[in-house]
């Protein structure tokens, strides 16, 4: 049974996340944890917007906060976001990984350690290589992996890096990812 969803994206990511989350219905209850590369920019207004347009509570993940259902968490800009054994978050100001802080690899790796096969990892549009190795970790731990189709993604480097590294469970156009996510979340 899937317990959580981890998503990573960079260039073109805001639009992609908006599209994906707006396709998820009220009945979707899994926690969604997102790393969006956005430099040092503030994401507050983007989150407020998403809060209005989706069925979920959308917020920045806070240090030591317990992960809850029906909530979408974003890594705070300039901090790595980690998932701890007790299903809470921790933040870190460690050096950048793949030139990124927050790094998608850090979220994916620590989420896999905790959620193991009960996790779906999704890698969307982006123009660097962060997240591919982390997504492979999710797969190795038995989680499901979805990569946005590099052919149709806004920026293809990030999804391509994943498909070149290993064979993800699903490679899908952005429009079809929400349906697959629903399907996976309904399987037991």
């Amino acid at each position: 049974m899937i317990k959580a969803v981890a998503i990573g994206t960079s260039y073109g990511g805001m639009e992609a996340i908006r599209t994906l989350l707006s396709k998820l219905p009220d009945s979707f209850h899994l926690p969604v944890i997102i790393v969006l590369h956005i430099g040092n920019n503030n994401i507050t207004s983007f989150l407020t917007q998403l809060n209005k347009k989706t069925y979920f509570t959308v917020k920045e993940a806070e240090d030591k906060e317990t992960i809850r259902e029906k909530t979408v968490y974003f890594a705070p800009p300039n901090y790595h976001l980690q998932v701890e054994d007790d299903y809470s978050f921790s933040l870190s100001t460690d050096k950048k990984i793949n030139y990124s802080r927050p790094s998608i690899d850090v979220l994916f790796e620590t989420s896999a350690w905790t959620f193991k096969e009960r996790l779906v990892g999704i890698l969307l549009t982006g123009s660097n290589y962060d997240g591919a190795r982390g997504l492979l970790t999710i797969k190795k731990y038995g989680g499901k992996t979805i990569v946005e189709n590099p052919e149709t993604a806004f920026a293809q480097s990030m999804p391509s890096a994943a498909t070149e590294l290993f064979e993800p469970d699903y490679v899908l156009d952005l429009e079809n990812i929400a349906d697959k996510l629903l399907e996976l979340s309904n399987e037991s």
């Binding site: 701890e84 054994d85 921790s90 870190s92």
Partner: peptide, 8 residues
């Protein structure tokens, strides 16, 4: 200490 941090 945070276990995720230590492990990394």
């Amino acid at each position: 200490y945070s276990k995720a941090h230590l492990k990394r």
